[in-house]
Structures are given as structure tokens and as C-alpha cells.
Amino acid sequence: MAIIVNKEEKRRNIALSCRALLLEHGIGELTISQIAKTAGVGKGTIYEYFENKEDIVFEIMQTFIVEHEKRLEEISRSEMSTKEKLFHFFYLLFENETARKHLGIYKEFLAISLMQETKAMLDFSEACRERFLFILNNILEAGVRSGELNAQMSGSAGSLVLFATGVIVDSRLKTCDVKQEIDHLLDIIIVKECK
């Protein structure tokens, strides 16, 4: 009797088994041989499920993004003040060692996508941006309703995502204090603090 393999599940399992490998080596140093060995499959099997290394990286990054998005949604739905929600929205990628490792992979992905601008990378970035805009917009709308934010902040999610992207890019500089930059922005946009 033939064994029926769920291709999507197998693909996801291969990618998930390589998460730590990606965090350890980064995108540039990751090889198909390492991926195959870590996943416990042959190199040929890798190519049955993925077109290339970038395809695997996209799959792994998608798991990181889903986890990040879940955490942002939890923050959005929490009882925290708008200021606290916005702080965590912007600081989440810097808050601990695991988050900083994920951020390192994202920076590497961002650098590659800026240089190559392949359709798949642009589509992936656009999809991520849309999901984060949705969550941020919910935080902003709730802040406007509570009076913590000026009504003009309702349409500012895109500008704030650009701020977040800039913080991510500049965080590599010794002169950029991420926490201080976020606090400064929040001091400007919060009109009333709620406890």
C-alpha cells in the first residue's frame, strides 16, 4: 500500500525543522545541504518541495511573521494603554535575544530584497506590511476613540510603519537608541495618557 504524503505538511515540516539553522547561519550562509541534513531528508527531496533556498527561507520567515503577528494581535486586544500598545508594537523585535535574532534574519531578507527586488520578495513584503498596517490601524482607532490620540492619527498607520522600518534599518547604528526613539515618537503623538 502506498504512503500518502501531505505535501503542504511535509513542506512546512522541512521548513520548521530548519528554523534554528536559519537563525544560526543567516540567509547568506545557509545551504541546501545543511537544510537537507537538518530536515533528515535528501537534497533531492528538498527540491521536490521547494524551488530554491529562497523558497525555504520564505517558508521559515512566514512562520516567524505569523508568530510576530499573533503577538501583535495579543497586544492590540490587551487592556494596555494606547501608549503601551504602540511601544510594544514598535519594540517587539528588540525586546529579547530571540526577537533580535528574528530581526537579524529580517534585516538580511530586507537587504536582499532591496538589491534583487524579485516579485516573490516584493509580494511577501507587501503582504506582511498589509497585515501589520491592519493591526496598527486597530490600535490607532482605539486610541482615537479613547481620546489618547488626536483624531488625525486615524490615517497614520502607513507613516508609523515607515517609522518602524526606519528604526529597524537604523538599529544597526551605535548612535540609534531604539527605545529612546520610540519613546520620543510616543511623547509626540499621545495627547492624553490613560492608566
Score class of each variant (00 low, 15 high):
I75K: 01
L160G: 03
H88Y: 07
E97H: 01
Q152N: 15
E84M: 13
A142Y: 02
R131W: 00
V144P: 04
F124D: 12
K174E: 12
E97K: 03
L110H: 15
T118P: 04
F90I: 00
L72N: 05
H88V: 10
E73R: 11
E84R: 12
H88A: 12
Y106I: 08
C176S: 11
V169L: 14
Q152V: 13
F87T: 01
R100F: 02
E97Q: 10
K119Y: 09
G166I: 09
E148V: 05
L86E: 00
F109L: 03
F132P: 07
L140S: 07
I139V: 09
L162S: 13
H102V: 02
L114F: 14
R77W: 06
I105K: 10
E74G: 10
E73V: 11
L122E: 13
K174F: 06
T98D: 12
A151R: 15
T82H: 04
E148G: 00
L140M: 06
E108M: 05
E148A: 09
L133F: 10
K85C: 06
R129N: 13
R145G: 03
L173D: 10
T118C: 08
L72R: 03
M80G: 08
F134T: 06
I75Y: 12
C176Y: 02
S81C: 14
S125L: 14
F163K: 09
T82G: 02
L86Q: 00
M80C: 12
I105W: 05
K119P: 04
L103V: 10
T165A: 09
N150P: 00
A111S: 07
Q152P: 04
F124Q: 12
A142H: 09
I168S: 00
N137S: 15
N137P: 06
A120N: 09
R145Q: 08
V167C: 12
S159N: 11
F90E: 04
F94I: 03
D170P: 00
K174D: 07
G147P: 08
G143R: 03
V167A: 11
L110R: 15
L103S: 07
T118H: 01
V144R: 03
K107F: 03
S81F: 13
N138F: 13
G158C: 06
A164K: 11
T165K: 08
F89W: 02
F90T: 05
K119H: 04
I135G: 07
N137L: 11
Q152S: 15
M153I: 01
G166P: 12
A142E: 15
R129T: 12
Q116D: 13
C176W: 00
E74K: 05
G166H: 04
N137V: 06
T98Q: 04
Q152G: 15
E117V: 08
L72K: 12
M121N: 09
E97G: 09
V144I: 10
L110V: 14
L110A: 15
A99Y: 00
K83S: 10
Y106V: 03
R172K: 14
C176E: 13
S146G: 03
K101P: 06
L86W: 02
M121D: 08
E84I: 09
Y91I: 05
M115A: 15
L122W: 10
G155C: 03
K85D: 05
G104W: 04
T118S: 07
F132H: 14
E74Q: 14
S125C: 13
N137T: 15
R145S: 02
L110K: 15
L72V: 02
R129F: 14
I168V: 07
L92C: 06
